[in-house]
């Protein structure tokens, strides 16, 4: 009971403090992805209503999952440490899982909201159709979020300063978004390159997510990749737990 109440209040405060009262954050989270969708569908396509928006909607959601883990959690944790917020909560009896769990819930809800907005915008503007099984779509989104939050937490654990966390997150997020089938199809690269890129957890997640959501592919076809994502998640969690510093 006590722990549930703690978790509920912490989660609510995450939304109030880091989202609702932060106009910039709201804009970046809710409006930017749609802006990307519109911009990229015109930039990368030969004309409106081509297949590119259908490619981009899951791609942008996938890229948001990456940046949510690397920026939203990784850099945020480094900032919290630098601002001495972490050492203060470390002195209280709050168990670490409450702190991290509430961040994960916060991020997942924001991602779900982003996904809904992007899907709606895709449907309205570009007639994008989501044909997959909603439960399977939700499951793979959840798994991807868990994977990249656990990997992002490593950044938060190892980076000494907010600045270095920022640099690591930029170096990872921006290139990965372009190399992981998020914004541009990696099939445009030579076969050797694209097969190599399909070993990345980001590519495996985004491809699975896209195939399940817009192509209606059954999630069960992606067993190996799902297994890999689970392993990445476990590895990320273990490394984070071992290396995380509150001070």
């Amino acid at each position: 009971m006590t722990l549930l109440r703690m978790f509920a209040i912490q989660t609510k405060m995450n939304f109030v403090w880091y989202f609702r009262r932060d106009g910039e954050m709201m804009f970046w989270t809710l409006a930017m992805p749609v802006f990307f969708l519109v911009l990229f569908s015109f930039a990368f396509s030969t004309g409106p209503n081509s297949g590119s928006a259908t490619f981009l909607v899951p791609g942008i959601i996938g890229a948001q999952v990456l940046s949510s883990g690397f920026w939203g959690v990784g850099v945020m944790l480094a900032t919290f440490r630098e601002k001495h917020l972490l050492r203060r909560v470390y002195l209280t009896p709050m168990p670490p899982w409450v702190f991290f769990g509430s961040l994960v819930v916060y991020r997942m809800v924001l991602l779900a909201a982003q996904a809904v907005i992007l899907v709606a915008a895709g449907a309205l503007l570009f007639h994008v159709r989501i044909t997959g099984n909603p439960l399977e779509i939700f499951a793979i989104l959840l798994l991807g979020t868990a994977t990249f939050i656990s990997l992002g937490t490593i950044i938060g654990a190892l980076a000494r300063t907010t600045e270095s966390a920022n640099n690591i997150a930029s170096i990872l997020t921006v290139p990965l978004a372009f190399l992981s089938d998020a914004y541009v199809p990696i099939d445009r690269f030579p076969h050797a390159v694209s097969s190599a890129l399909r070993m990345l957890p980001s590519t495996q997640f985004i491809d699975t997510f896209r195939d399940v959501s817009t192509h209606g592919a059954p999630l069960a076809h992606y067993g190996a990749w799902i297994g890999a994502l689970v392993l990445w998640t476990i590895a990320g969690t273990v490394i984070s737990a071992r290396t995380f510093r509150w001070v």
Partner: peptide, 25 residues
């Protein structure tokens, strides 16, 4: 009470006290 500490900028007094009460059950 730490010398070098800070609390989330957007939090208000009531919220911080309520959250910390929850931390201590």
């Amino acid at each position: 009470q730490l010398q070098a500490t800070s609390l989330p900028e957007k939090a208000n007094v009531r919220e911080v006290l309520v959250l910390y009460a929850a931390y201590y059950g």
